[in-house]
């Protein structure tokens, strides 16, 4: 019996008059890979923003391993094991790719700033260990050539990949990825799929927003479909493929327009 890693309970969000999310509920079991799909403006990013408390929810709550996330500050959420990436890659400008990845390990760096200033042995050892791990991760995703380049000089796809790497460096238990494949070419997308599988294989729960249906069908254990702020379907890829409401969400509107 697997535990529930992430749970959304009747999440709603108003932006002024816009109802961006309407009573969305779903659960993601531990160790699975859940894809969140839906047309543009469906509220996918909004779900992530509500779960990670970037915006307070208008109503409803999100839970991580059974405990509420409501009111929990962002840094605390990350410390509890929930790490996210952003739709527009937010790598840190003014830092190299390696420094960016290392920044993800901040929670796991235990030597104090003072110890680092005094060049104490323990602090230096820790620093070296982290650097090795970060370099290993960069190598894994194929970014090691960019190790010392300014992160913002990387091509867009590489920046998105770097952001995922940085999130991995934080050793998340649950990982939320917002459109990680946007900007990647076909080979890179295949590699991303392999990476996500490997990460899941290590017991990390993943929730990913993705438009590339081939990728989604290929890697997801579960798919949540969102349309105009509502969860319209929730099931395995096979279930989703045949679900008429999903087809409606994606194609239906065109028919309406055509018949109007």
């Amino acid at each position: 019996m697997t535990r529930t890693a992430l749970e959304a309970i009747n999440l709603s969000k108003h932006f002024g008059g816009v109802l961006a999310l309407n009573d969305a509920s779903f659960t993601v079991p531990e160790g699975s890979l859940c894809a969140l799909i839906g047309p543009n403006g469906a509220g996918k990013s909004t779900i992530f923003n509500l779960i990670t408390n970037f915006y307070p929810a208008s109503s409803g709550e999100a839970r991580l391993f059974g405990e509420t996330l409501t009111g929990c500050p962002a840094a605390r959420i990350a410390a509890r094991g929930l790490v996210r990436t952003f739709q527009t890659a937010r790598v840190f400008p003014g830092m190299t790719a390696l420094q960016n990845v290392l920044a993800g390990a901040r929670m796991h760096q235990h030597s104090s700033g003072l110890a680092q200033m005094l060049w104490l042995r323990g602090a230096r050892r820790e620093e070296q260990a982290l650097s090795r791990r970060a370099e290993g991760l960069l190598d894994l995703v194929g970014l090691s050539a960019f190790r010392d380049a300014a992160a913002t000089d990387l091509p867009m796809g590489a920046q998105k990949m770097l952001e995922v790497t940085r999130a991995l460096m934080a050793r998340p238990r649950v990982l939320l990825l917002d459109e990680p494949a946007a900007g990647l070419n076909d080979t890179e997308t295949v590699e991303l799929a392999a990476l996500l599988r490997a990460v899941r294989g290590n017991g990390v729960t993943i929730m990913v927003v993705e438009h590339n249906m081939a990728l989604v069908m290929n890697i997801a254990d579960q798919i949540v479909v969102l349309d105009a702020g509502c969860v319209v379907a929730d099931g395995t890829p096979v279930e989703i493929r045949g679900n008429p409401r999903v087809i409606e969400a994606y194609v239906g509107r065109d028919e309406e327009v055509a018949s109007a």
Binding site: T52, A74, A75, G94, R106, Q109, Q116, A123, A167
Partner: peptide, 24 residues
């Protein structure tokens, strides 16, 4: 070291830093 990286991360992007567990 990590101290400098934390400072630079905050300079670069406060909310993204917080999302990585930094106490901004």
């Amino acid at each position: 070291s990590g101290f400098g990286r934390a400072l630079m991360s905050v300079r670069a992007d406060q909310s993204a830093s917080a999302a990585l567990g930094m106490r901004v």
